[in-house]
Amino acid sequence: MLLIGIFAFIYFPAGTADALPGGLLDGKPMLMSDREKQDYTNAVTDNNPSTGVNMYDYYRSKRLTYEFKENTQITAYQLNGGRNYLYISFLDESGKNLYSVSDGRIVTYGKVILPKVNKVRKIILSSSASDSSVISEFDVWGSVPDNIPPTVPTLSGAMNGKNAVLRWDKSKDADIEGFNVYRDGVRIAQLKDDVQTYSAALTAYDEKHSYTVSAFDTFGNESKPSNAVILALDRPVTENTQEAIGDYLLLKWQKTEGATGYRIYLNGRSIGNVGPTVFEYKITRAMGYIPGAISNKAEARAILADGSVGGGHNPVAPVIELGAGYSVGDAFKAGMEFVKLLNGWVLIALAIVLANMIIAFLYLLNKKYKITQRG
């Protein structure tokens, strides 16, 4: 870290401390301007207590200015001397005021810590038209930035209820200042200090969002975006059970958070609605229930505040499906085993029927082809 010092000495009152050690501006001239003239002087940076600047002389206010060749970070200042209505301003390259001390009574003989002021290109020390202050010393501390962006964070994330929770590792950079959080390329948060988590509330179901995080340091350098994490607010799933009781199917379900009611389904077909405090439903023959049918799958699904419907899960409902690992080859083997069970006369009869069906099909196909050719 480089030490920066700006010094102004013309009048050194008795009993004040010695000048602070010099830095980047030691011996370099500052622009001294008033209403009549502008000129450079190193009297304010020569670290000599016998020189300095009277900020007001014969109805003329004066101003001291120094411009840095590159963006600089300022962290503290000290001003010795002064009486009334002095101002310190820290400006960026465009002349924008980044930070100022303008209470009109800047009189201190100690180091004043500032919030880190980044990208300073100019410092101005000025007085009002009626001030008669004599500055014996003016110093600032800081460093020239490295212009190297921080390490790119590695991002992970998961949904926790309706919140997208993002996490990343602690930064290895000593000058880390914080992190920017982006959703679909738009920054939604700027976090100070070396935090490692952020939670973003989601309200719209099924909308996928891409999250990234970048790190920035005390000099304003920002890393490239992290890897993207895609998260979405899934629709709530209602847990169901069912039981066949005589001529009706009794469906029961658990309460679903956020439900304004429930919609009842039988084999994927909606058959009715109930309120948010009802948690069982009788499905009768009139509603389409067929006792003893191979598949009678019933579900209650939550009706959400936006009018849409959530999902349903019924682990005890009968489902027709192939067993795990069942293939076409297995089906062929099963067919051959079935053929073995048939006697010879049955096989001859089946062969005659199938042969006639094939001949009829070829005849119709040939007839259609000839008619098409004539046309």
Results as ranks from 00 to 15, higher is better:
Q190M: 15
L191Y: 01
L191G: 02
L191M: 10
K192W: 13
D193G: 12
D194Y: 05
V195D: 06
Q196H: 09
Q196F: 05
Y198A: 02
Y198C: 02
S199W: 07
A200K: 04
A200V: 11
A200Q: 10
A201L: 14
A201M: 10
D206P: 09
E207C: 10
K208E: 14
H209G: 11
H209Y: 12
H209W: 10
S210P: 01
S210E: 12
Y211G: 07
Y211P: 09
Y211R: 08
Y211C: 10
V213L: 04
V213A: 01
S214K: 08
A215D: 08
A215T: 10
F216V: 03
D217M: 07
D217G: 03
T218L: 14
T218P: 00
F219M: 06
G220H: 00
G220I: 01
N221M: 06
S223M: 06
K224G: 12
S226T: 07
S226F: 03
N227W: 11
A228R: 11
A228F: 11
I230D: 11
L231H: 04
L231P: 07
A232K: 13
D234V: 12
D234H: 12
D234F: 11
R235H: 10
P236I: 07
P236N: 08
V237S: 07
V237Q: 05
T238K: 03
T238C: 14
T238A: 13
N240W: 05
N240V: 13
T241D: 14
T241G: 13
Q242G: 08
E243I: 14
E243M: 15
A244Y: 02
I245A: 11
G246T: 14
G246C: 14
Y248I: 02
Y248Q: 10
L249P: 00
L251M: 10
L251C: 08
L251V: 07
K252M: 12
W253C: 00
Q254D: 11
Q254K: 11
K255F: 06
K255P: 08
K255A: 13
K255Y: 06
T256H: 01
T256I: 08
E257A: 11
G258I: 05
G258H: 06
G258D: 04
A259N: 07
A259V: 12
A259P: 09
G261C: 04
Y262T: 03
Y262N: 00
R263P: 07
I264M: 09
I264R: 01
I264Y: 03
Y265P: 00
Y265T: 02
L266A: 01
L266V: 04
L266H: 01
N267E: 03
N267H: 04
G268T: 13
R269L: 13
S270P: 14
I271M: 05
G272M: 14
N273L: 14
V274I: 15
G275A: 10
